[in-house]
Computed example of a mutant assay.
Amino acid sequence: MMAALSLLAACGLPRSGPNKSEIFDGAVERGGNTQVIYVNDHVTRASAFAPSYGFSNSFRNAGQVGADEIRAGDVLGLSIWENVDDGLLTSLGDSSTALTEIQVDSEGFIFVPYAGRVRAAGNTPDQLRLQITERLSAQTPDPQVTVQRVAGDGATVSVVGRVGAQGVYPIERPTRSLSAMLARAGGVAIEPEVAVVTVKRGNDSGRIWLADLYSSPGNDIALRPGDLILVEEDQRTFTALGALGGQTRVPLGNEVISAAEAIAMVGGLTSLLADPTGVFVLRDEPESVASRVLGKPVIGSQRFAYVLDLTRPNGLFLARDFVIRDGDTVYVTEAPYVQWQKTLGAVTGSAATADSLTSITE
């Protein structure tokens, strides 16, 4: 019997993953490439690093677009009145003429008959009106000009993702801020707790939680022409493996999740299989965090296997304080006796099968 047990153990029976001793064999101290560290109060504090979302100063300090400032791509409407019966632009019997949908070209100019090519971009409608009036005054007495700006291609942002109505929207007086533009696009179409808003501006980008947009006025940034606003569901997850109630990827949401909560989210430890002394959190730590945890400088990111022994007097408190991060793997090893049970079951099962075959042949 013992020979059979040894043979089966050597061959390797099915299991959910490496056992506790096999993970420790990969430690740096034993020639491996993983920092295997028992979690204590120092480790929970040193590893409590969570990349935060937010906008850089370049976003926060950008001024609001002038609601009346004309830009390349905008569409203008002009009306011109002349004080003569047969004017430059008006036909006989008419005192005014309307020039509708004049688009500002890529260089910022428009063409007005008898006034020529006039720079519109960078001016307000009133400033442009004065320019056109001055040019026409040399050819017709006391012309009266009105200029109306209609938001066009030059002062728009794109809103995409999980919003009520994706599209290209003009930056107008009521929609010059991020929150106002989201409202203009029909609001966010997912649960606010998991919604992330990204603003891309040229080669720069910033990202915040939707909840932080409304809780902190500084996050309600002014929009600039060409901005891309993306609303999506948070993609941060951790993976649960081993002797747990479930083995799956679990979304983090915008909450701070502890190791104890992560275990509970997948059904807790499997009482008939799990080794409560072998709960591991596997992650790659950046250089700065790794140096704090180890208490010495290191170069480059490091692989860590954090060990939580839930049977220690403060084990559950440490699990409650240890923060889970995006990309973590929570792995629970099987208790040592589980493999012996499997081995014994395989042997006794094999013996029973052999006895049955013997009975059949007799």
Rank of each mutant, 00 (worst) to 15 (best):
M1S: 14
M1E: 11
M2A: 12
C11G: 02
G12W: 11
P14F: 04
P14E: 10
P14D: 09
R15I: 02
R15H: 14
I23K: 05
F24D: 03
G26V: 04
R30A: 10
V36M: 07
I37W: 03
I37Y: 00
N40F: 05
N40S: 07
V43M: 06
Y53E: 01
Y53W: 07
G54F: 07
G54Y: 05
F55W: 09
S56Y: 05
F59Y: 11
N61C: 01
A62S: 12
V65S: 06
A67V: 09
D68V: 00
E69V: 15
R71E: 01
G73I: 06
G73L: 04
S79F: 10
I80Y: 06
I80F: 08
I80T: 06
E82K: 07
N83K: 14
D86V: 13
D86G: 02
T90D: 06
L92Y: 12
G93E: 09
T97S: 13
T100F: 01
E101H: 11
D105F: 09
G108T: 05
I110N: 09
I110V: 14
F111R: 10
F111D: 13
Y114P: 09
A115C: 00
A115G: 07
V118N: 05
V118F: 03
A120N: 07
A121N: 00
T124I: 04
L128P: 08
I132L: 07
I132C: 02
S137G: 03
A138W: 01
Q139D: 09
P141K: 10
D142P: 02
Q144T: 13
V145H: 06
T146L: 08
T146Q: 05
A151G: 14
G152E: 08
A155D: 12
S158R: 08
G161Q: 08
G164H: 03
Y169V: 01
P170L: 08
P170T: 07
P170D: 08
R173V: 07
R173A: 15
P174Q: 12
R176F: 07
R176P: 00
S177G: 01
S177I: 06
R184I: 02
R184A: 13
G187S: 11
A189F: 04
A189S: 15
P192K: 05
E193W: 02
K200W: 01
R201Y: 01
R201D: 00
I208D: 00
W209V: 01
W209R: 14
L213N: 00
N219D: 13
P225I: 10
L228V: 13
E233M: 06
Q235H: 03
T239F: 06
A243D: 08
G246I: 00
G246S: 15
P251R: 12
G253V: 03
N254M: 08
V256F: 09
I257M: 15
I257G: 04
A260T: 07
A262W: 02
A264C: 08
D275R: 06
T277K: 15
V279L: 14
F280S: 06
V281E: 07
R283A: 08
V289R: 03
S291F: 10
S291T: 14
S291I: 09
I299L: 04
A305I: 01
Y306M: 10
V307Y: 05
D309H: 08
D309M: 08
P313M: 07
G315A: 11
L316P: 00
F317S: 12
F317A: 14
D321A: 15
F322M: 14
G327I: 03
T329S: 11
Q341E: 13
T343Q: 12
S350A: 15
S350C: 09
A351S: 10
T353P: 02
D355G: 00
I360S: 02
E362D: 08
